[in-house]
Amino acid sequence: MEIVERVRQGDVRAMARLMSLIENYSPDATLALKQLYPFTGQGLIVGITGPPGCGKSTLTDQLTQEFRRGGKTVGIVAVDPTSPFTGGAILADRIRMQQHSLDAGVFIRSMATRGHLGGLAKATYDVVNVLDAAGKEIILVETVGVGQDEVEVVKTAHLSIVVSVPGLGDDIQAIKAGVLEIADIFVVNKADREGANKTVTELQAMLALGPERSEGNPPIFETVAPQGQGIAELAQGILARQAHLDREGFRQTRQRERSRALFLELFQERVTRRLLEQAIANGSLEETIERIADRDLDPYSAVEELLGKAGL
């Protein structure tokens, strides 16, 4: 396939087009991804998550600059939400990343959450694989900033950064459920604001409360992203943490966990799509939904019936 060759050579248009095919569920995307898969697994995938407005885009921008200084090529996937009402989206993360738009060593792609059947994580992972196969050494995945999807997306990364800011009050509450556990590195951004020390202390206290992690507790970095303060230390910290995880043999465990999560995700998506396509094609889906709404049929039996028809 020509597109596969071009992606491997880092051809920007081929990469961009393949990403669109992925987002549009094109069968051509699957064909290309099959051939690209053996060439993936080289790049370091870093997930960046945290509440809206905490500075994820600016941090991504500054980290990119730092990694570029170190001679590494960078791929960025920036996710913004799709409106559940209109299906449209405004993807504006590039505003903070303008300084890299003319750098051939940086590829930035904005993604909308859309209504991905089978989860955003799979589509994001496929796009990350394109960047990986194209030879990008560091791949930064910036998530939307709210909700359960974040945990899913960062599960596809080698290393997850959870960003927090002082003065949110409920901040610690927000990171209690799940996000605390996925962090490999914490960043307290906007650290020039009042209360930064308190936020750091609270994070330390939260970590001390939890069970000792086998890979060691995540480090906490303080940054002021627009001024670049603390960025060099953070970039160093990312590489050091990765080296630490590698040394202790956590990379293999993680690779396996990622492969499991992604296989299951893909499997789910494909099975769901196939069955739904069948049900839509023979017109039974709308009729079934109507019957469920009228209490003529319960949804549990309806699902069993659908699976039964497919011989499952």
Binding site: A16, R94, Q98, S110
Partner: peptide
């Protein structure tokens, strides 16, 4: 209207616009 809009902000050079347009397909 249901489109995905990539908004890149102020003060863009034509070179920056074209580069973004290609990466974003």
């Amino acid at each position: 209207a249901g489109f995905e809009v990539i908004y890149t902000g102020l003060r863009q050079t034509p070179e920056m616009i074209v580069s973004a347009a290609i990466q974003e397909d």
